[in-house]
């Protein structure tokens, strides 16, 4: 069964939709890369799924459960959905530990505990008393991923996790973590600008352009389709 299922979904900020006719399924252990030029609507789509403001139409199912548009974000989150927001999104004035503990308050039962996070992300353990504002880009991304895991989510929406990171941090944090999520059987929807990294970790790829999906297939297929990449991804 797919964990995440979109049927004829359109999203926008009122008025004409930015994306329409989106059909998408993500199952356990799948990483679906959501590619497209800047401003095509990747973040809008992720925010709409999370209930964060953009208008959503069409049918959106999480583990077979229909999600009405009237649901507030916390109710959607409790279905097992977590957003790893772009860049910002860690609470700067809160300590690393407070940031993490917030995610445990309404957590679903899972194998993730604060102790396990500290064991697997020793950098965060070292910096637990520091405010979120004191972290480097890579550490912040670690914090955001760890926070999402602590909610007990099994569906992760990652919004451009490589943005602003150095190549080393991309490899050490983003690529390694997404591989691990895949092995743990989580469903990942990965919005990315960095096509190379996305194709490296994805099990499937979707290209957004002109207000809808223009390609859906395997990463290899997309990697070989130079023409499509040039036209819609600017590679």
């Amino acid at each position: 069964m797919s964990l995440l299922c979109l049927r004829g979904v359109s999203v926008g900020h009122g008025g004409a939709p930015i994306l329409a006719g989106i059909e998408l399924e993500v199952g356990p252990g799948e990483v679906v890369a959501l590619l497209g030029r800047n401003g095509v609507g990747k973040t809008t789509l992720l925010h709409a799924l999370m209930g964060l403001g953009p208008v959503r139409r069409g049918s959106f199912l999480v583990k077979g459960q229909d999600v009405p548009t009237s649901w507030p974000p916390h109710r959607i989150a409790r279905l097992g959905l977590a957003l790893v927001p772009q860049g910002r999104g860690a609470f700067a004035a809160l300590t690393v530990e407070e940031n993490l503990r917030l995610a445990t308050l309404a957590a679903r039962p899972s194998a993730w505990t604060l102790a396990r996070v500290y064991a697997e992300f020793p950098r965060l353990a070292e910096r637990r008393r520091l405010p979120g504002a004191a972290l480097s880009g890579g550490e912040r991304q670690m914090l955001l991923i760890a926070r999402a895991l602590l909610t007990g989510a099994d569906i992760l929406l990652l919004d451009e996790p490589t943005e602003g990171l150095a190549p080393l941090a991309i490899e050490a944090v983003v690529v390694e973590q997404i591989r691990r999520l895949r092995e743990d059987g989580l469903a990942v929807l990965l919005a990315e600008q960095n096509v190379a990294v996305a194709l490296q970790v994805a099990t499937r790829a979707v290209v957004l352009a002109e207000g809808g999906i223009v390609f859906a297939g395997s990463p290899e297929e997309l990697a070989n389709d130079r023409d499509l990449q040039r036209r819609h991804l600017g590679v």
């Binding site: 209930g51 964060l52 403001g53 507030p72 977590a82 809160l94 407070e98 308050l105 309404a106 679903r108």
Partner: peptide, 22 residues
């Protein structure tokens, strides 16, 4: 930690919601 929830809600209410908190 409940104080942290309040402080986090001041800073970014929507992000607190995505963690499952009402």
């Amino acid at each position: 930690i409940w104080g942290a929830v309040v402080r986090a809600s001041v800073a970014d209410r929507r992000m607190v919601e995505t963690l499952g908190l009402d």
